[in-house]
Simulated assay, not measured.
Amino acid sequence: MAMIEISSSPTSTTLVIDGDLDLAERDRFPEIAARVVGLRRQLLVIDMCGVTFMDSTGAAFLITLADSSRSRGGATVLRGADARDLFVLEVCGALDLFRVEDTCSHTKQESGFQRPAGTGSTPSA
């Protein structure tokens, strides 16, 4: 089960995700989305540094959050998504909904996971 933590400041909401963001988590997505949207902050930061796997269901969840933020005039930052996650969003045609930050100060590096160079590029088969 993924751990999803929501925190907020006067101007932003941060969603920190650890674990798999996939079909198994989908029943939790509407409640989490409602909480994030209810905070009504201009900036949404989605910290993906701890995400171990994301499928199209997880991507749809992130797209829903970014759409909601954009419809209110806000912005969504995707922090620490790896090449695989960015590829899923790109295939969905939704990568332009996010400002991508390639910064992780914890988790993947500490666990020995090395992020591939050129995170924005399409992974080779």
Results as ranks from 00 to 15, higher is better:
Leu23Val: 10
Gly112Tyr: 03
Val37Asn: 01
Val51Glu: 06
Gly38Leu: 09
Thr76Lys: 01
Ser7Gln: 15
Asp96Ala: 13
Thr119Cys: 04
Ile46Glu: 01
Leu43Ala: 05
Met1Tyr: 08
Leu44Phe: 10
Thr13Gly: 12
Gly93Lys: 02
Lys108Gln: 13
Met3Phe: 06
Arg26Val: 14
Gly73Lys: 03
Ala125Leu: 11
Leu89Trp: 11
Leu89Val: 03
Ala117Trp: 03
Ser71Val: 04
Thr107Lys: 02
Ile32Gln: 11
Gly93Thr: 02
Cys49Tyr: 00
Phe53Tyr: 15
Thr13Trp: 04
Ala60Asn: 15
Ser111Arg: 15
Met48Phe: 04
Thr14Glu: 14
Leu86Cys: 09
Lys108Asn: 01
Ser56Trp: 04
Gly112Val: 10
Asp67Met: 08
Pro10Gln: 05
Glu90Asn: 14
Glu31Ile: 02
Arg70Met: 05
Asp27Ser: 13
Leu65Tyr: 09
Glu110Arg: 05
Glu101Thr: 11
Thr11His: 14
Asp18Ala: 06
Gly58Met: 11
Val37Tyr: 02
Phe29Arg: 10
Thr14Gln: 12
Met3Pro: 00
Val37Glu: 12
Glu101Gln: 13
Glu110Met: 04
Gly112Ser: 10
Arg79Thr: 08
Lys108Asp: 07
Ala75Gln: 15
Arg41Gln: 14
Asp55Lys: 00
Asp55Glu: 08
Thr57Val: 15
Thr64Arg: 13
Val45Met: 14
Ser124Asn: 12
Asp47Ser: 06
Asp27Tyr: 00
Arg115Ser: 07
Thr52Trp: 01
Ala94His: 03
Gly38Asp: 10
